[in-house]
Design a protein around this nucleic acid. Structure first.
Length: 422
DNA sequence: TCTGGGGTCCTAGGACCC
DNA sequence: TCTGGGGTCCTAGGACCC
């Protein structure tokens, strides 16, 4: 078997870089993007990181710091990021034989067999920067886990100029000795602590640890696979086909506290509409609906409550009306009066293929007429804009459950009325 | 005053069956 | 007080990712 060469192409501070595209004066300035509800920092440029702003840090804690250092702050604008992401991915896909789009801001590419692998990596980086304007780091190595390590170095090292190829075990070992175990892809906080307790601190010490049985016992099958990937043994293959989701969730933290069941119901209604449309898009039907709502766990002086209700459906469906009725029934069942609700959400799960289940004699599937209605709704919302057509239960008001978004940038690329003008 | 959202995989343990 | 063994399926919860 020939040695593989996997490239990991990862956009730098992706959301911030997207915002900078339309505000070039922000290059070299500190920029952060906040999570929904302007809750916490979920993307930071290097300049913002240098100020000590941590990933996931609540905004209210760093507000003063941001003001003092003139950090440019944005509410998240996912429509924009998705659009830019598609452009980046298109370049990778059309320039590499096999590609796995791993997330909105990163992709694995199999470069095995490419003549000059390092040059190919450099070319990709240049082309994305030229054509879309997004800076990336490219890490290349024989396994996915090692390519992640290479990617970290590509981003950190000035010498690397954004591209690193760890093509020999010698280079890999140098890199692994400089990598703390906690920085390995797939090793989180809990495992990191356990490894440290075993006196394993660097990725190299993990790679060369003798007792595989113990690793498997403590860190499960996946833990052992990560160790083998560090040794250059491929355990994680490239998954190319876009797999269907196995569950679809929708949840939001509210902009304000909610006591009223009817307002919760309106929120839940919106979430169901949203998730059901996504589910129909991947041509699934679900057998299970869940609804949850909770008080603010960070607020210590209030009485906490968490409701979670779930039900199996008699017949698999993708009909929003059926799902709404079920979700409302669950909310009715779990709702308790008198609590300050801060967040609610729903989950659709236990999917079947919509074409398969229709063949099943025992199920009473959605009728042709129902499906046509749903398709029509989806079509109108796709063409005319999200949320143009809504169910009455979803409300039309700017209510308490809506999010705070005080620093939102315009929808430059997805809305005609908000096109940039220079 | 103010702390996101959406996923996946794995395992242990319970339920249930013969 | 004694009280099998083995298999499968499901679920909750943990851990991790971006």
């Amino acid at each position: 078997m020939t040695t593989k060469a996997y490239a990991l192409i990862d956009c730098n501070s992706f959301y911030c870089s997207c915002e900078r595209l339309f505000r070039p004066e922000l290059n070299n300035k500190p920029v952060i993007v906040l999570s929904n509800n302007d809750g916490c920092a979920i993307a930071r440029t290097n300049e913002a990181k240098a100020l000590g702003i941590k990933m996931g840090e609540p905004y209210y804690k760093i507000k003063q710091l941001c003001k003092k250092h003139r950090v440019e702050v944005f509410s998240c604008n996912f429509a924009l990021y998705t659009n830019i992401s598609n452009r980046v991915m298109q370049i990778i896909i059309s320039n590499c034989p096999d590609v796995e789009v791993y997330s909105v801001d990163e992709a694995f590419a199999d470069l095995t067999g490419v003549e000059d692998i390092l040059s190919h990596g450099k070319m990709l980086r240049e082309k994305i920067l030229q054509d879309v304007g997004i800076p990336t780091g490219v890490g290349i190595a024989p396994t996915k886990v090692l390519s992640k390590v290479a990617n970290h170095i590509a981003k950190k090292s000035n010498k690397a100029k954004g591209v690193v190829y760890l093509d020999s075990e010698y280079l890999q070992n140098i890199a692994l000795k400089r990598t703390p175990v906690g920085d390995i892809w797939g090793v989180g906080r809990a495992s990191s602590k356990k490894l440290n307790d075993m006196r394993i601190y660097s990725a190299y010490e993990f790679k060369t640890y003798k007792n595989d049985k113990l690793i498997q016992k403590i860190f499960t099958k996946v833990g052992l696979q990560i160790k083998q990937e560090l040794q250059g043994i491929n355990c994680f293959a490239l998954s190319q086909d876009v797999e269907k989701k196995k569950e679809i969730m929708c949840s939001r933290t509210f902009g304000d506290y909610v006591f009223d069941k009817n307002i919760l119901k309106e929120a839940v209604s919106n979430y169901i509409e949203n998730a059901a449309a996504k589910m129909r898009q991947q041509k699934s039907v679900c057998n299970e609906v869940s609804v949850f709502a909770r008080t603010n766990p960070f607020k210590e002086n209030i009485e906490q409550y968490y409701m979670y209700e779930r039900s199996k459906l008699a017949n698999p469906t993708c009909d929003t009306r059926t799902l709404l009725a079920e979700a409302f029934r669950l909310l009715e069942r779990g709702y308790r009066e008198g609590y300050e609700y801060r967040k609610a959400g729903i989950k659709l799960s236990n999917f079947n293929e919509s074409s398969n289940f229709q063949m099943n004699f025992f199920y009473e599937s959605d009728s042709e007429k129902d499906l046509k209605l749903m398709s029509a709704i989806d079509y109108i919302n796709r063409v005319e804009g999200e949320g143009v057509l809504k169910f009455a239960s979803s409300g039309t008001s700017d209510d308490a459950w809506k999010m705070n978004r005080n620093f939102k940038s315009p929808r430059y690329t997805t809305s005609w009325s908000e096109l940039p003008s220079f």
